[in-house]
Design a binder for these strands. Sequence first.
RNA 1: GGAGAGGUGGCCGAGUGGUCGAAGGCGCUGGACUGGAAUUCCAGUAAUGCCCUCACGGGUAUUCGAGGGUUCGAAUCCCUCCCUCUCCGCCA
Length: 427
Amino acid sequence: MLDPKLLRSEPALVAANLARRGFVLDVGALTALEERRKSVQVHADTLRAERNARSKAIGKAKASGEDVAPLLAEVDSLGSQLEQAEAALAAVSAEVEGLALTLPNLLHESTPTGSDETGNVEVRRVGVPRHMDFTPRDHVALGESLGMLDFERAAAISGARFSVLSGPLARLHRALAQFMLDLHTQDHGYREAYVPYMVSRQTLTGTGQLPKFEEDLFRIPGETEYFLIPTAEVPLTNLARDQILEAAVLPMKWVAHTPCFRAEAGSHGRDTRGLIRQHQFDKVELVNVVRPEDSYAALEAMTACAEEVLKRLELPYRVLALCSGDIGFGSTKTYDLEVWLPGQDKYREISSCSNCETFQARRMQARWRNPQTGKPELVHTLNGSGVAVGRALVAVLENYQQADGSVVVPDVLQNYMGGVKQLQPSA
RNA sequence: GGAGAGGUGGCCGAGUGGUCGAAGGCGCUGGACUGGAAUUCCAGUAAUGCCCUCACGGGUAUUCGAGGGUUCGAAUCCCUCCCUCUCCGCCA
């Protein structure tokens, strides 16, 4: 959510910023709505003040034993007037709120302008794709020929966009997650968390997935409404919800390994093959809750933490600064990490690190006590994948494949594989 | 699932229809005392909207788990829901 004060005082400025996203903010309509809200609220407040004053007088009169009947008569018509005014206020407030929740975040000045992913700017490229003197296969061919990856059984169990991993491949998947968790907790100062995978509507509103992107989520019917988390960003960031944090506890650096569930609405026909786009996938997620002045340094640091995963796995990748047309709803600035996939002969997204500044904090009422002012102020929140486990598995399979269809286990994972150094068919 | 008890400020906790944004305590901040500190004493100490003000600040409204209701007036009474705790049952 944007700062309502800024929205009121500088609507043109806000509109100009959002226009870089291709988002059209109707300043005239917004201003008119705001004017209406203001007058309705002042009216209701005035009536309420009147009523309060008179009620107080009645109380005093009663206490001193006077006859309160004439006072009661005076206040007679106030009730219905106030009721009407409050109903009007509730209606206009709901309208304002509804609008506010659907506005995307302002962009940081360093976010490049562009209309779609072709406008993203490559910041750096790390590692060189390995030369293969054979035609590289994609992870589906590799996994299936190893006999460890089964989309047919998954389809029978659940339908499209699910997978079954088995044997050493399932273990490799687990090894990747363990490796990432250990890296971030031991070397990067993150605190591990185990969090709910089912969350409330309010929680998803806090991080910005709702109300606008409900069709991307899985909702569980039942007496209590739950949604499956689309990312651990949701529960981790909401750890700060409705809190006034002491300055000393900042920055909070959380890491969690969770499954993620996405309906992938609107992506029919995209990445239908393989593990790239599934309804269920695992991810190791990083979340920072920081003082406002630290958030851009934190974004660089968090991106470096995600990159370290790929460096240690010796996977070639590049870093993109997402442009205004491709960046997420709640983010002011985002770096995507794209890993090299020989099977697709291109770089594919494996991590996304974003600074949300106060956008989520305002929705969640996540604050800290600023020692300078002594007042509660909104924190900045950041999130980043560190990294997507399923896609990391894809990258390992494709980059470490051998001519004979076997796959070498990266050095840093061998301890997690009980000494297994290579995935062989029929293992 | 059954029975009971609760949810009040940063924290603990009093408050069963009016002068209650809310006693008291803790914590925190400032001041006095001290060579410095502890102790002690004094004072201050919620958020948010709107209006006025260049500003300092002031006014007003809302907020006592959430939402409805009763009433001139609700932290307080009624209804629904959520959450926490205790005991029992069940269970991983």
